[in-house]
């Protein structure tokens, strides 16, 4: 069971299991004993709304806009970073938060390392599952490495130039 870290660096464990996309021809099979994250398009195609034990996940090439109008029916949305240098997940997160108005938990999964946590937090992620070999104990320091920022993002919609002017 991997550690899940929140924006305060607190570590907990939970049961959410990421269900991979089934290969073509196979159907999605879900375990009945634990909550699951399923590919977002399959959540949309299925009849899962209202089930607080079923969340969704996006891969980095997928379009968060498919959930427009429905994001807040989901208890958890995860965004996968297939490689930590794949920066598409940051845009997906901001669109989910700022455009689609998602208020639930937004979790970074996949190749999630320490030195990217600060950027992820700024883009609206509030839960992080670090890659297994990374030290969760260092997450807090990395989340708070900067105490200020120049530009607006999900965590602060006022860029520094507006705060300076006031």
């Amino acid at each position: 069971m991997p550690d899940v870290i929140n924006t305060h660096g607190e570590i907990r464990q939970d049961q959410w299991q990421v269900i991979e996309r089934p290969v073509e021809g196979e159907v999605l099979t879900l375990p009945d004993d634990q909550p699951v994250l399923i590919p977002a398009d399959l959540w949309l195609a299925g009849d899962y709304a209202g089930n607080d034990r079923i969340g969704a996940w996006f891969d980095s090439h997928e379009e968060p806009e498919i959930l427009a109008g429905r994001v807040n029916e989901l208890p958890v949305i995860a965004v996968n970073f297939p490689k930590f240098v794949d920066g598409r997940g940051y845009s997906i997160a901001r669109i989910l938060r700022e455009r689609l108005g998602y208020r639930g938990e937004l979790r970074a999964i996949g190749d999630v390392l320490l030195d990217q946590l600060h950027y992820m937090k700024r883009c609206g992620f509030d839960a992080f599952t670090l890659r297994a070999d990374k030290d969760s104990g260092k997450a807090l320091q990395c989340l708070n490495v900067f105490s200020n920022s120049y530009q607006a993002a999900t965590d602060n919609d006022l860029p520094l130039f507006r705060r300076r002017a006031s």
Partner: peptide, 17 residues
Amino acid sequence: ELIRQWSTFHPEFAFLP
């Protein structure tokens, strides 16, 4: 300078293609 400030440590665009 405004572009410099906006782009410095921009959280969304640190891992572009």
